[in-house]
């Protein structure tokens, strides 16, 4: 027994080193980012407070750019509203007899506004921290977008903070398509340039041109169909000859993220239940 204690004392540094390395590696190779505990991510209470303080200061820095983006987006939306109004008038004239307006309570998607309090773009796995959490209705696996386009997917939520897996994180694959066509590919970041990503696994017979818009496909409850993602810069050959890969310039400027919208889908639970039933029956 004394020998044993002596042994431990003599090699205590090595033991401690091993313990710390194992603990570190455990954290590191606990590789599925969806299973992290909220205490060990930037969504925990302490870091949220610190980042909120820092975010209050830095939120002012990009106001001009954000304002410009909003104006531009506003102009686009206004034009769209005018077009739609025109169309509506025309349709109304056509089906004068049975005009039916949709009830707003039947709307499937709603938005929760949140502010970005921490964000990085220079790593391989980037995450974003928001200042709202489960108390404000944010749940894991909700989509996040800003005025320009897709930002990421919520991954861990605390009561008043949430961590988002950024689109600039190669754990995230997003189902996307070229606007106007139905061929679906998956968008993934290659870790190089925070303004560009790659749309992979697009079928060989898909039609596209440089400058075309990429939008979300709506094949999940995370994002509705048609959220803008980016434009095509050029086509690449994928690793597999049967697929195209496209280099996409992202609409979202990840270096100046300010206020974002979290997309709440009222059908999430229903769809998930239906899908679970199917799996259970198998």
């Amino acid at each position: 027994m004394r020998n044993l204690i002596e042994f431990f004392l003599r090699y205590s540094s090595w033991m401690l080193f091993a313990v710390y390395m194992v603990a570190g590696c455990f954290l590191l190779f606990h590789s599925n980012p969806w299973q992290h505990h909220v205490m060990l991510t930037s969504a925990n209470a302490v870091s949220a407070v610190v980042y909120k303080g820092a975010g209050n200061l830095t939120a002012y820095f990009h106001l001009r750019d954000i304002n410009e983006d909003l104006q531009r987006r506003n102009a686009v939306l206004e034009r769209e509203v005018l077009n739609l109004k025109q169309q509506l008038e025309r349709t109304r004239e056509l089906v004068y007899a049975d005009t039916m307006t949709t009830d707003s309570a039947l709307q499937r998607y709603s938005f929760i506004l949140a502010r970005v309090i921490n964000n990085s773009t220079n790593r391989i796995h980037n995450y974003i921290t928001l200042d709202k959490g489960s108390a404000d209705g944010i749940r894991p696996e909700m989509g996040v977008m800003d005025q320009n386009g897709v930002v990421g997917i919520v991954n861990v939520t605390g009561p008043h903070s949430a961590r988002v897996i950024s689109l600039l994180n190669n754990h995230l694959r997003l189902s996307c398509k070229v606007k106007g066509h139905d061929h679906v590919g998956s968008l993934v970041w290659d870790g190089a340039d925070p303004e560009e990503a790659i749309l992979e696994e697009l079928p060989r017979h898909a039609v596209f041109a440089v400058g075309d818009t990429i939008i979300t496909s709506g094949f999940s409850t995370v994002f509705p169909e048609g959220v803008p993602v980016g434009t095509i810069i050029k086509g690449l050959r994928d690793h597999d000859e049967n697929f195209f890969a496209l280099r996409v310039k992202l609409f979202t400027d990840f270096t100046t993220l300010g206020t974002v919208r979290v997309i709440a889908d009222s059908m999430t639970d229903e769809l998930r239940e239906v899908e679970r039933d199917i799996i259970d029956k198998k």
Binding site: G24, C25, L28, H36, T41, V50, N118, R123
Partner: peptide, 22 residues
């Protein structure tokens, strides 16, 4: 280790700084 872990928690790097600091 604990300094690295603190920085890791804030930066969402999960153990990278903790290992390097040790």
């Amino acid at each position: 280790f604990f300094m690295g872990l603190t920085v890791d928690i804030f930066a969402d790097t999960q153990g990278m700084n903790a290992i390097s600091c040790t």
